[in-house]
């Protein structure tokens, strides 16, 4: 029963949501849309609990790092201290309070933005080392990247006024064809995975193979 009940719940909930997406079915005041809406609200509540669970799990893992003095344990300590402070201020004074905003805009925003910005340095170094005309394929990639980069910056238009037009063509045709293929492939994969979950063939989400 421990295995069958979750499978039945998954099947029933999945079928209701799918039917509601495509059809408007209802008898009297009770409609499939109402049931579907109720299920979605339960999902939102579960998702909110999952956030709390994630916070507890984070605390558990990083506490163990500190206790066992694992390599980089001081990073775990910094995480726990900031997490406790931010949570305390957020819960007691609200996320719109001046103190919370001070911590958020004064610490989190610059740190997070800095880490993301460091990518520019790594990408420049990586581009310098990787973009080399070693063969025909690499040369096509190199030329395309060169043109698109020029077309994305205002300076490109100063160098050659048609760069944005060529960039647009590259984005609208070769890029679009490739991206569309990826999207359709992923959608077909998601569809087949969804079907497998619905009929109980795929059970890894239950914590078993």
């Amino acid at each position: 029963m421990k295995r069958e009940i979750p499978l039945v719940i998954t099947f029933v909930v999945g079928v209701i949501i799918i039917l509601d997406y495509f059809f408007k079915i209802g008898i009297g005041t009770l409609s499939l849309a109402t049931v579907s809406m109720e299920i979605q609200n339960w999902t939102l509540i579960i998702a909110a609990f999952a956030l709390g669970l994630a916070a507890v799990n984070l605390l558990r893992i990083h506490s163990a790092n500190i206790r066992l003095k694992r390599p980089g344990w001081y990073n775990s300590l910094a995480l726990i201290i900031t997490m406790v402070i931010m949570s305390f201020v957020g819960i007691t004074q609200g996320t719109n309070s001046p103190l919370y905003r001070y911590w958020y805009t004064g610490f989190l925003v610059p740190v997070d933005a800095t880490i993301f910005s460091l990518l520019a340095f790594y990408i420049t170094s990586a581009a310098y080392r990787a973009f080399r005309a070693r063969n025909v394929d690499a040369t096509i990639l190199l030329v395309t990247a060169f043109v698109v980069m020029l077309g994305r910056a205002p300076v490109g238009e100063l160098i050659w006024k048609d760069v944005p037009r060529v960039t647009k063509w590259l984005m609208d045709y070769p890029n679009m064809a490739g991206q569309r293929g990826i999207i359709i492939g992923a959608a077909v994969g998601a569809l087949s995975l969804g079907l497998r979950i619905l009929i109980g063939l795929e059970r890894s989400y239950l914590g078993q193979d």
């Binding site: 520019a120 990408i123 420049t124 581009a127 310098y128 080392r129 973009f131 080399r132 005309a133 190199l142 990247a145 060169f146 980069m149 020029l150 994305r152 910056a153 205002p154 300076v155 490109g156």
Partner: peptide
Amino acid sequence: SFSHIVVLAFILIAN
């Protein structure tokens, strides 16, 4: 613009 120029210049030099 300037950062793109740097990246492109290094790619050009390397090639």
